[in-house]
């Protein structure tokens, strides 16, 4: 296993490099630049700005400089849009925010979704099953751009219980609405995936054998059925976890939470190249990391799996 992990870490580096190069080229190929605006800058002014940020160099030099900066001084460059902040600044203020509400949402989604899914599978075609499926489908079909303004309307304007936005250093009352809005659709997906894979496992011969042997139901479910049933859910959870902790532009937009989900989309819309790249690398790194963790977990769930 250790050698497998080492091999995976080794391949992560060329993967990230490739990601950087592809993203860099894509970004520069897209029409419009960071300094394209309603009123075009006079050529002399534009030249000064491009010289300052090194945008006047050929693209391969820019890529080499960029990667060099990261390796030698962990410098991801300045923001072209927010003049007094570097990419490191933006990520180090925004990422803790998304990490907080993303992680909480993830916990809520896994616990509630998992419980709903297992309950529904154990009592297949009972009222509990229909209830659980109903809830999860209901949560799934309410897109978060409907959910978010609805929550603000109900809890802020009508009931006056919770603030309608802002982060305020992560105070609990500012967390509730974003977490609800973000977790619901993931919760629903987890519930449905858990239900279906649980059902599949419960119908396998080895569970039937266990039942025939007269083992207590609880033992069968939690000791024997749950682990293999987790497999497809885990494949889903890896990328889902990454996308939750890297935030959601919808959440940041409606709740003014200031996470990197919004920075990511804004930097793309503003062509704020360095910020865009910084967050892309973060997302890429996390994606690679969590897929590795998922693979390790596979081997734990099903010891027969060999890489």
């Amino acid at each position: 296993m250790l050698s497998y992990i080492l091999r995976r870490v080794a391949i992560a580096i060329p993967t990230l490099l490739l990601l950087i190069i592809i993203s860099f080229l894509l970004m520069h190929a897209a029409p419009g630049g960071p300094f394209t605006s309603e009123r075009p800058l006079p050529p002399a002014v534009l030249a000064n700005i491009e010289a300052k940020y090194g945008l006047d160099e050929p693209i391969y030099v820019q890529i080499i400089n960029y990667i060099g900066g990261i390796i030698t001084s962990f410098d991801f460059g300045p923001s072209f849009k927010y003049k007094d902040r570097s990419v490191n600044d933006i990520i180090s203020t925004g990422f803790p925010v998304t990490l907080t509400y993303g992680f909480l949402s993830f916990a809520v989604a896994v616990i509630v979704g998992g419980a709903l899914g297992i309950a529904a599978a154990l009592k297949q075609n009972s009222w509990l099953d229909y209830f659980a499926v109903g809830i999860s489908v209901g949560a799934q079909v309410l897109p978060n751009f409907v959910m978010a303004p609805l929550l603000v309307l109900v809890f802020t304007l009508w009931l006056g219980w919770l603030p309608g936005g802002g982060w305020n250093g992560g105070q609990w009352n500012h967390l509730i609405l974003p977490v609800i809005a973000l977790s619901t659709s993931y919760m629903a997906s987890i519930a449905r995936l858990t239900r279906s894979s649980m059902l599949e496992v419960l119908h396998t011969n080895f569970i039937r054998t266990a039942m025939a042997k007269g083992l207590p139901y609880r033992v069968i479910v939690f000791k024997h059925a749950l682990k293999p049933a987790l497999l497809p859910v885990m494949s889903y959870l890896g990328p889902a976890f990454v996308s939750m902790i890297t935030g959601s532009v919808i959440i940041d937009m409606y709740f003014s939470t200031g996470g990197i989900g919004q920075s990511y989309v804004n930097s793309a819309l503003n062509r704020d190249y360095a910020v865009m790249m910084g967050i892309t690398i973060l997302i890429g790194g996390l994606t690679i990391l969590f897929n590795l963790i998922v693979d390790i977990l596979y081997a734990w769930v099903d010891p027969k799996i060999r890489y």
Binding site: P149, V152, L153, T156, L157, M253, S256, Q262
Partner: peptide
């Protein structure tokens, strides 16, 4: 506050 409708609600 990015969204104008949420801004009005708030």
């Amino acid at each position: 506050i990015n969204d104008e409708n949420v801004a009005l609600t708030r």
